[in-house]
């Protein structure tokens, strides 16, 4: 197990690096003029990443399969979202489906 100083330095390095990723856009924003098409491309990139994040975390836990219960719950969420159900319904139905399927031993 790592020592306290190493743990603190590691946390700070990860924190500073993460902040740098997040702050690059806002910091450059005031210095360079970003074209509308570039802005649209960045919005599209963010959407693409969020969808990919949803898809991978629906199917995988890290690098191993997450199991059918979670995938089924998220599938319910996709169906309800496409049918314009309210946000709360989508999230609660997804978690509920997964919980019930697990209870049933899936």
């Amino acid at each position: 197990m790592i020592s306290a100083p190493v743990l603190i330095v590691s946390a700070v390095l990860l924190g500073v690096g993460t902040f740098a990723f997040r702050a690059a856009g806002p910091m450059l924003h005031t210095r360079v003029v970003v074209s509308t098409s570039m802005q649209a491309l960045m919005s599209m990139s963010a959407t693409v990443l969020l969808v990919a994040l949803a898809a991978t975390s629906a199917v995988f836990d890290g690098s191993s399969p997450a199991g059918w219960a979670r995938a089924a719950g998220v599938a319910v969420a996709v169906l309800l979202a496409w049918r314009r159900s309210p946000f709360v319904v989508i999230v609660v139905a997804a978690a509920g489906t997964t919980a019930v399927l697990r209870l049933l031993g899936l």
């Binding site: 330095v9 590691s10 390095l13 993460t18 997040r22 856009g25 924003h29």
Partner: peptide, 24 residues
């Protein structure tokens, strides 16, 4: 610790385009 920091940074690289999308 080095592996843990590098893995964390790779995972968080997706925040770069988030920052540009939400700069305004």
């Amino acid at each position: 610790a080095v592996a843990a920091v590098l893995a964390g940074l790779l995972v968080n690289a997706r925040h770069l385009p988030f920052g540009f999308a939400l700069a305004g």
